[in-house]
Computed example of a mutant assay.
Amino acid sequence: MTQATAAPPRAARTAPASVEDRAVKRRRVLDILDARGRDSLLLTTHTALTWYLDGSRVHISLAGDPVAAVLVDRDGDHLVTFNNEAGRIAAEELPAGVSLHSVPWYGNLHEAAAAVGRSAAAAGQGPLVEADVASELRAARQQLLPGESARYALLSGELAALMTDVLSRARPDTTEFELVSRLAGRVVAAGAEPLVLLCNGSSRSGFRHPLATHSPIGRRAMTVVCARRDGLVANITRWVRFDAGTPQERDAESRIAAVEADIFDATVPGARLDRIFTEIKTAYVRHGFGEDQWEQHHQGGPAGYAGRDPRVTASATDTVVLNQTFTWNPSGPAVKIEDTVQLTESGLQVLTVDPRWPVSTVNGLQRPATLQL
């Protein structure tokens, strides 16, 4: 009788943080402190923490607050977490050069983090908080570094591939819950977190944010997935149908892709988000959707460490930069298009791509068509 060979142990989790990339991010934050004449900044939101730590996981509940806070001080970086999280974070999530402090699980995380910095205490003032420098932090996150770009492209490609795998096996009697549960399983198996899972079958196509139900998808369905890994959030929408579609549907699909193409054309270095927003509103009219369509659903915006960072509106004055990522999502009645893209020196690069998915060429760029089964 032969002895069974033990399966090799799985690789231990290590934070993806790059020493070089973290040094750039620290310099960006120190520049904010210099401009404000302050000595420390307290980071408390998931978006800011995962960006600054370069991909560390700082959550337990997807619906809860982070279980860590970071004080960026002129003397160094200090991560404060609860005592029941400290061991795991030290072993799996703590980047090199970050000091770890713990407080009791019932303690006040933010108060403890604000008190660890020596330079702030010496100056007799508390640290800046994120709300004080929200626009500056957002600007610091805009331009992805090479390591971040590589991780984002990998996640986005995997997300597009699993969408193809799951949707190509759908049938008219597949329920919306069945479809999103299959997608959720694949997302988690990829080491990511499903932040948004939407689905509407043909009976619910009027809803633009359709949480799944037990309804069969019928002749046509839309699915939306937003998945997070190493802090970065990739977003994608795909459509599937089981007939050739009506002329009205095919026409609407073509026109919404033309709206998106106009948005892409407006997404260039130096453009301001509020001016892109103006272009979005005129693009709907230009392509026959009516001047009120932009009011029926948000239009997307920059992406990265938040699903949208920020959503584009008339009051968003951020300036577009190279290597920034975006997810625009124009929509109309029973039609929508959405991918995660990055603005590179050679133009927009679509990240959520699977070569197996059917495409059409719109303004020189391959865009997803409806998968017909």
Score class of each variant (00 low, 15 high):
Gly185Ser: 10
Gly185Arg: 05
Arg186Val: 04
Val187Cys: 10
Val188Thr: 15
Val188Leu: 12
Ala190Gln: 08
Ala190Glu: 11
Gly191Thr: 12
Gly191Ala: 10
Gly191Leu: 11
Ala192Ile: 03
Ala192Phe: 00
Ala192Cys: 06
Glu193Gln: 12
Glu193Ile: 06
Glu193Arg: 05
Pro194Phe: 00
Pro194Ala: 07
Leu195Cys: 08
Leu195Gly: 07
Leu198Glu: 14
Leu198Tyr: 09
Cys199Tyr: 04
Cys199Phe: 03
Gly201Pro: 05
Ser202Leu: 08
Ser202Ile: 11
Ser203Gln: 13
Ser203Glu: 14
Arg204Ser: 13
Arg204Ala: 14
Ser205Val: 14
Ser205Lys: 12
Gly206Phe: 11
Phe207Gly: 12
Phe207Asn: 13
Phe207Met: 13
Arg208Tyr: 04
Arg208Met: 14
Pro210Trp: 03
Ala212Glu: 08
Ala212Met: 06
Thr213Lys: 06
Thr213Ser: 15
Thr213Met: 08
Thr213His: 04
His214Gln: 14
His214Glu: 15
Ser215Phe: 07
Pro216Ser: 12
Pro216Gly: 08
Pro216Val: 11
Ile217Gly: 04
Gly218Gln: 11
Gly218Ser: 10
Gly218Leu: 11
Gly218Val: 08
Arg219Ser: 15
Arg220Ser: 14
Ala221Ile: 06
Ala221Val: 09
Met222Arg: 11
Met222Asp: 00
Thr223Gly: 09
Thr223Leu: 06
Thr223Lys: 03
Thr223Gln: 08
Thr223Pro: 03
Val224Cys: 12
Val225Phe: 01
Val225Glu: 02
Val225Met: 02
Cys226Arg: 04
Ala227Cys: 02
Arg228Cys: 02
Arg229Pro: 01
Arg229Cys: 03
Arg229Ser: 08
Gly231Pro: 05
Gly231His: 02
Leu232Glu: 07
Leu232Lys: 01
Val233Met: 03
Val233Glu: 06
Val233Lys: 05
Val233Phe: 00
Ala234Val: 01
Ala234Trp: 01
Ala234Cys: 05
Ala234Gln: 06
Asn235Thr: 10
Ile236Ala: 10
Ile236Trp: 03
Ile236Arg: 12
Thr237Tyr: 00
Thr237His: 07
Arg238Ala: 13
Arg238Asn: 07
Arg238Phe: 00
Trp239Val: 12
Trp239Phe: 12
Trp239His: 13
Val240Lys: 05
Phe242Ile: 06
Phe242Val: 09
Asp243Ser: 13
Asp243Ala: 12
Asp243Gln: 07
Ala244Tyr: 00
Ala244Asp: 15
Ala244Ile: 02
Gly245Trp: 06
Thr246Gly: 15
Thr246Ala: 14
Thr246Gln: 10
Pro247Trp: 03
Gln248Arg: 14
Gln248Trp: 07
